[in-house]
Each structure stands twice: as C-alpha cells, then as structure tokens.
C-alpha cells in the first residue's frame, strides 16, 4: 500500500508533564519492570527446590549490595503498581475522574507507595 504523508497529531513529548500523565506512564514502566522482577522469585523458588548449592548462589547475589538495591527498587515498583492499580480499579468503578480528584489521588498514591515500599523493606531485613 502506498504510504501517504498525512498530518500527524502532536506527539506526547511536546506536552508539559502532568501528574495524571506521569502516574500513567509510571504505571506502565513499573509494570514492565515487575514482569522482569518475576525472574527474581522464579530464580529463588527453582534454586530452593533444586539444591543447597544452587540456593547459595542465589543467596550470594541477593544479599550483596547490588541484590539489596534490586530488592529496594523492586519493592518500590511493586508498591507503586499496587497502589496505583487500586486507583485504576476505583476509576473502573466510575469514581474520581474530575481533574482535581485525579491530581489529589496521584499525590496520595506517591505517599502511600513510598510508605508501603519502605516498610516492606524494613520488615524483610
């Protein structure tokens, strides 16, 4: 098919970032990150089921500085995706669509997800 040069609507990049657009793209970024994060607990489970040697290798990584950093950002992403996911489910029920409400809930999501992430890391160690 012949490709015609049609006018395009402005790309997202030209808009000033807003709370609503930032929370939206963060939901997607954390979602993709968490999909890769599943590799950590799959590795944990397989190592634990396989042998002690195999688990020691996992344990060596996860208790290293890099491993602890991974755990921290993993929990941060998980907390955000969890709390913002609940915000999405509330939207699905038809509530909170006014712009000022969406902006307020965005702030609430940031605060709660940081609290949840930090407390889960504190509980873990």
């Amino acid at each position: 098919m012949e490709k015609k040069e049609r006018p395009l609507s402005p790309h997202l990049g030209i808009y000033k970032p807003q709370l609503t657009s930032v929370t939206s793209i963060l939901h997607r970024i954390t979602g993709v990150g968490l999909a890769f994060g599943t590799g950590i607990f799959i590795w944990f489970l397989i190592a634990l089921g396989w042998s002690e040697n195999c688990f020691d290798c996992f344990h060596y990584f996860i208790t290293s500085f890099a491993g602890r950093l991974v755990i921290f950002f993993w929990m941060l992403g998980m907390a955000y995706h969890l709390v913002n996911g609940i915000r999405h489910l509330i939207w699905d029920m038809g509530y909170g669509f006014k712009i000022e409400d969406a902006n307020k809930s965005a702030i609430v999501v940031f605060i709660i997800s940081i609290i949840v992430a930090v407390s889960s890391v504190c509980v873990a160690y």
Binding site: F44, H59, T63, R68, M75, M78, L82, I86, S119, S120
Partner: peptide, 21 residues
C-alpha cells in the same frame, strides 16, 4: 493480586531477600 501482593511484600520478600537455605 491486591491481598496476594501485600502477603508477598510483607511475608515472602523476607524469605527471598534474607533467609538462609
């Protein structure tokens, strides 16, 4: 995943991140 993730973050991660074999 709402209750399951809360369990994972506050229960499972301790075993994953810190526990011996």
């Amino acid at each position: 995943l709402i209750p399951l993730t809360i369990w994972f973050m506050f229960c499972a991660v301790g075993a994953i991140a810190n526990a011996s074999y």
